[in-house]
Every structure is written in C-alpha cells, then in structure tokens.
Amino acid sequence: MTPLFSARLLPAAPARGLTLRAAAAAAAVALLASACTTSRAPDATPADTATRNVIAQPLAARANGIAVRPGDGARIVTDDRNNALLVAADQASPRTLASVPAVAGQANSLSQPVFAAPGVLLVSRFGFGTAGTVFVVDQGQAAPLAGLAPQRRRLGLASLGAGRALSSWFVKDGAAPITGGVSLVTYDTATHAASERDLVVGLAKPVGVAVSGDTVFVSDQSRGAILRYSLNALLAASAPANGGPVFASVDGPDLLAADAHGALYTKCRAHGVCRIAPDGTLTQLAGDFEDARGVAIDETRHRLYVVDRARSSNAPSLIRTIDLDGAHP
C-alpha cells in the first residue's frame, strides 16, 4: 500500500450522526483499506465563528508538518510512518517526494517543512535529544546540515531565504527544567555546512515559529503563549533575548503559520484550531480536531491546511482545509 493522499475530496458536512473524522475514515476504508473513528466531543465554543472546513483528505501516513508549494498549491507533508515527505496537488496522484534517513533505535520524528527556494525544502527532525537536525531536500535527496547541536529537539522552522532559517528547539536533560529558544541557522547551499546563533533563549517549550515582515512569532507550548519579537532587533543584538513579550495567550499552541494580513494560525485548546488577529484577538475556526499539528497558508487560494493527526498510530491522518474567505475583518 502506498502511503499517499486520497485524491477524493470530502464535503465539510459529514453524514448525520458522524463526526468529520468518522466520515473521512469511512472513505478511507474504501480508498486506503484503513479507518479512523473518534468518540470525543468537539470543544464547546459557541461564541466563536463557524467552522469553515471545505474538504478533508484521508492520508495513510503519520502526518505532522505541512507546507504549501508556491504556484500550484501542492501540499508537502512530513510522514513519521515512513520517514518521508509526501507531495500532492488537487486532483493529482500524490507521491513520495523524498525519504529521510532513519535513526537506528529511534522513532521517526520529522516536524516542520518550509521552502527555502523554489524546489528546495528544509525540514526539521526532532531527534529526541540525540539526533536533532535540519535537512535540505533538493531534487528528491535529503541531506542533513552539518554543525548543528544534535541534543536540541527541533520543531519549528521559518525560512529567511536561501542560506538562512530560524529554528525553534528545546533541551531536556534528565530532571533538569526544560529550556528552549530560537536560533538563526546559517548554511552553505552547496556543502550543507551550517552554524547557528541563538536569537532567543529562556523559553520553556518553543514549538512553532513564523515570520511576518519584521515580526517573529514563537509559540511557547508549555507557557500557553505566543511571543512576538522584531527580527531586525534580534539579528542586530549582541546577545540573545531572554524570554520575550507575550502577544497572545493560547491554550496548547503548536506549529504556526502567518498570513499576508499578519494573522496567525495554530492549534488551540484540546481539539481546536484558532486564528489570532494582528491585535491578538483569538477566534476558534474549528473545534473538532483529534490532534491538530502542522498548519500552512495557501494565499492564492485563500485556504488554511491543517494536519489532523490520528491518536492511533495505525489510523490515517487527515488533511483538513479551512476556507479563509471572509475570515478577515
């Protein structure tokens, strides 16, 4: 069985009496010979806006991070079941874009993919304290950047153009408190030699990182906060920022995406996905996710893609789509 997207699109409104995941799983039985059900109730948020889900794609993969390819809007998804990156466009047969070398005796742990240049991706590997790194994926080949600290458990990535990226990470050393931060990763596009300089330290568990103009946003999951910084100020400082100003309080944020309006999108609460307006106002867009993970914006098509990762390792994940038309004031 090929671990790829179903090309069939499902409507947002499932059959009466079924959750969206159950309806998608019913399609997955026929298309992928697997199923996924859930008995939990969605988060109760009557004051929030209505869910804008327009499609749900069953994915026979252990999905985590997601990116949108400029131009055709194809989705790039990290798959921890096969330690690979998958690519699929609407109505097209998906395929494996690249396989990433596994770490012996360690679970697969790919996180955020981002485009560094047309056709060139970066993807972070969590690494569980021994193998954290960033890979360059070019022409179907994945090569690790050399020179990064492997004890750093890496999650979020934000490209600053070819040769530079922001990487969020944390270190867990026995019973010592977890500490994390964000570093500037500078790398040679030909040799893949890399170095990193800490821009932010003193965080608990930074997960997502996103850049909008001169603003850097970081989700500190343990604190339930989104922090905000000036990118130019961080780059010009002689020492890393310690902690940072809270832009918004969010229960359980994860990976981040920022749109052209300066709004952020991330997991919120146990089963939700939220939009954070430029003034910090929080609005839940959907509250019936099993486990929201990666988020990515398709600005051209006004869509938000969200990975809904099944709790069961044998069940298919979903790629949920939220229509962003009308989501902005």
Rank of each mutant, 00 (worst) to 15 (best):
D173V: 13
E290T: 10
G119F: 09
S183T: 11
S222L: 12
R8D: 12
H261Y: 09
V182Y: 05
S212I: 02
A149R: 14
R309P: 00
P42S: 11
N53M: 14
T51K: 03
S212F: 13
P3K: 01
L285T: 01
I322F: 13
P245M: 10
A74M: 07
D214Q: 08
C274H: 03
G105Y: 08
G161D: 07
Q139M: 06
D220V: 01
R153K: 13
A13Q: 12
Y305A: 12
T266K: 04
A193C: 11
D214G: 07
Q221K: 13
L264V: 11
V201T: 15
P113C: 13
G287M: 03
A107Y: 11
A310Q: 05
S159Q: 05
F115T: 12
P245F: 09
F170C: 06
A23N: 13
R223V: 02
L32Q: 00
G119C: 07
R21A: 05
L59K: 04
G326R: 09
E299H: 07
R152K: 08
T51F: 00
L256W: 10
S168G: 07
S99C: 01
N64A: 14
A13L: 10
L122N: 09
A237Y: 07
L122K: 03
V211M: 15
G119L: 10
A175G: 13
T19P: 06
A257W: 06
G73A: 11
A61C: 14
A27L: 14
V120A: 12
A263S: 15
V120P: 00
D80R: 00
Q91P: 00
S109I: 02
V246E: 13
V120S: 09
P329E: 14
Q151H: 13
G174C: 14
I55K: 05
P329Q: 13
G244W: 03
A286E: 09
N232V: 10
W169E: 02
P42G: 13
A7D: 09
V114T: 06
A210L: 00
T215I: 13
V54D: 15
L234D: 04
R21S: 02
A102D: 01
F126I: 02
G180S: 05
T130Q: 15
T45S: 14
P240G: 14
N64L: 14
L85P: 00
L285A: 08
A237Q: 07
V306L: 05
D138E: 15
A190K: 15
G156N: 09
A24K: 03
G119N: 10
H192L: 07
G208N: 09
A7L: 08
R320A: 08
S124P: 10
G224H: 05
T51C: 06
